[in-house]
């Protein structure tokens, strides 16, 4: 069996006619900073050999196909457009909200392959084949997701700007962990900022959707 690490050095240096000494000199790096060696990544060389050629697009629009809420949508985008912008502006899926536009408030949370991410800090061009789920994709056959229903029943929304992101965070939590604790819900929403102060009701609603009875007053009574 060939040693993949051996191969990787060969492939990295193949055809460049550079000695190690030459590289060190050329890159302006002294040997004190480190020594040349093979990559520690297993199987890298084989994967490298099979890689297709890179493709450069933009800065103008380029056509991509996005998988959104079970549909395929072909859309022309600029590389600089965030997923949030493409969802809201190009595809009119305005349920996803943009508040800070810096990944600091999580109002723009969507799922990529069922994992919550900030759509404001994801370039649409990077999404590739991953499945996008937005707040519009949570309801099935006209029936709200249990977390959405619980948000309504517990008044877990005030102005509503943080709500789609909160719901996406909490619904994802229940997917991973059907019986979360209060602390789990707090962790899942620790990046979701709510200015109105819906948190106690978000906690109540999410736990209720998981079939766990909890209310902010009960918690107090239990403690007292």
């Amino acid at each position: 069996m060939k040693d993949p690490e051996e191969n990787s050095e060969q492939s990295a240096n193949a055809g460049r006619g550079l000695s190690r000494r030459g590289f060190l000199k050329g890159a302006g790096i002294t040997a004190a900073g480190g020594v040349l060696m093979t990559s520690g990544i297993a199987g890298l060389a084989d994967a490298e050999a099979a890689a297709p050629a890179p493709d450069t697009v933009g800065p103008g629009r380029t056509s991509v196909t996005l998988k959104i809420n079970g549909d395929k949508k072909k859309v022309a985008i600029e590389p600089r457009q965030t997923l949030a912008e493409v969802l809201r502006i190009e595809l009119n899926l305005t349920g996803t909200k943009v508040v800070c536009d810096r990944g600091a408030c999580s109002a723009c949370t969507v799922w990529l392959d069922n994992t919550p991410v900030n759509s404001c800090m994801t370039l649409a061009i990077e999404v590739g084949k991953r499945e996008i789920t937005t707040i519009e994709g949570l309801a099935k056959n006209g029936k709200l997701h249990p977390v959405q229903e619980a948000f309504v029943a517990h008044d877990a929304s005030m102005c509503g700007f943080c709500t789609p992101g909160m719901v996406m965070s909490c619904a994802s939590l229940l997917q991973r962990n059907p019986k979360p604790t209060l602390d789990d819900v707090k962790t899942a929403t620790s990046g979701n900022l709510c200015r109105c102060g819906t948190y106690p009701k978000v906690f109540e609603a999410t736990l209720a959707a998981a079939g766990i009875a909890y209310s902010q007053t009960q918690a107090q009574a239990a403690k007292g």
């Binding site: 810096r102 707090k186 962790t187």
Partner: peptide, 18 residues
Amino acid sequence: NLDQYKILGSREVPQIDI
């Protein structure tokens, strides 16, 4: 910005009895 203009988040929510 909302990084450095700090507002309360989920972990800062106390028990509230009304």
